[in-house]
């Protein structure tokens, strides 16, 4: 046992090679208690490979993983017991009931007896399957299967929860429920590793995000830290009733305005530090004789960061 130092997961310099293809190269990150860490990247970026090494599914070609103070290898059972894993695809036995699925995996994690029974009942309530507990899971709707899929990962009360793209192909309502439960678990002190290619989810859930592409972490930090990489260039959209041409010319004179472009209903500006410049900008617009009917300020997002770092869009 190495000292815990508050970090539930410590992964350093992970490397995985499949034949000629370097799937993951020099990936390092750590997650503390109650922290949610997002791995954001497009399909094929190396998210699942990374996760598979972190939980000891795959042999590593290099690097170290320590979970709750225990090193993780494909053979280590102590470390694995501290991890709850939710695979990307629904991984349940369709011919077993929800309760039987939970019970089987509970036993594999060393649980048993009345303890396990109570925990299963609790969990069935949490994932909203209490009234369908004894139905075969093949009869479930897609959303119910998803919930069971996640429930199995939570059953043994892991210190680290790994969710691999849990919302792919999920309807908006179930998706929201999943995000809410992750927020709640994190609030209860669970460390969460969350992979996704949805920018909004990473922004909403994650305390820190690692942007991964082509097997490498391109940047890592809080949302604000990442966004600062693109600089504080906010997008300001003004909607004016008239005099659009004049307004545009007037605004372009402001030193903080980097770029001006017109659209059919108004004007888009790229501004360094919109918060500070906004009063002056509105004044300039009024001076040009226009009446501004609406103003919208959009701060830069992870999408923009990804674009900035890799030169390509997050979604295919």
């Amino acid at each position: 046992m190495t000292p815990d130092n508050g970090r539930v997961l410590e992964a350093s310099n992970l490397r995985k090679v499949f034949g000629d293809l370097v799937a993951v190269e020099d990936v390092s990150f750590h997650i503390g208690e109650g922290e949610t860490y997002g791995l954001l990247g497009p399909n094929g970026a190396g998210k699942t490979t990374t996760i598979s090494m972190v939980i000891g599914l795959l042999e590593r070609d290099g690097g170290e993983v320590v979970v709750a103070g225990n090193p993780v290898t494909t053979k280590s059972t102590t470390a694995k017991a501290a991890i709850g894993y939710v695979p990307q695809d629904i991984a349940i036995y369709p011919d077993l009931t929800a309760r039987e699925n939970l019970s089987f995996f509970g036993h594999l994690y060393g649980m048993g007896g009345s303890d396990l029974k109570r925990r299963i009942d609790e969990l069935l309530e949490v994932i909203g399957l209490a009234d369908r507990a004894d139905d075969r899971s093949e009869e479930f709707s897609g959303g119910m299967k998803r919930r069971l899929n996640i429930g199995i990962g939570l059953l043994h009360g892991p210190r680290l929860l790994m969710l691999d793209e849990p919302t792919v192909g999920v309807d908006p309502q179930s998706r929201n429920a999943i995000l809410e439960s992750v927020e709640r678990l994190s609030g209860e002190g669970m460390a969460v590793l969350y992979t996704t290619h949805y920018m909004e989810e990473a922004e909403r859930l994650c305390d820190r995000v690692g942007i991964i592409d082509e097997g490498q972490i391109k940047a890592e930090g809080t949302r604000a830290e990442l966004v600062s990489l693109v600089g504080q260039r906010d997008k300001v959209s003004l909607v004016t009733a008239d005099h659009a041409q004049e307004v545009a010319e007037a605004l372009a004179s402001h030193p903080d305005v980097v770029e001006v472009s017109g659209n059919e209903s108004g004007i888009d500006l790229l501004v360094s530090g919109a918060a500070a410049a906004l009063p002056a900008l509105l004044q300039l617009a009024a001076g040009a004789g226009a009446s501004v009917t609406s103003v919208e300020v959009v701060e830069p997002n992870l999408e923009a960061v990804f674009l900035h770092l890799t030169g390509k869009a997050l979604r295919d």
Partner: peptide, 15 residues
């Protein structure tokens, strides 16, 4: 095929 192998591998049991 039905991905439960990933779960078995992630569980604290030997291969």
């Amino acid at each position: 095929q039905n991905e439960t192998m990933r779960r078995l591998l992630a569980a604290p049991i030997s291969r």
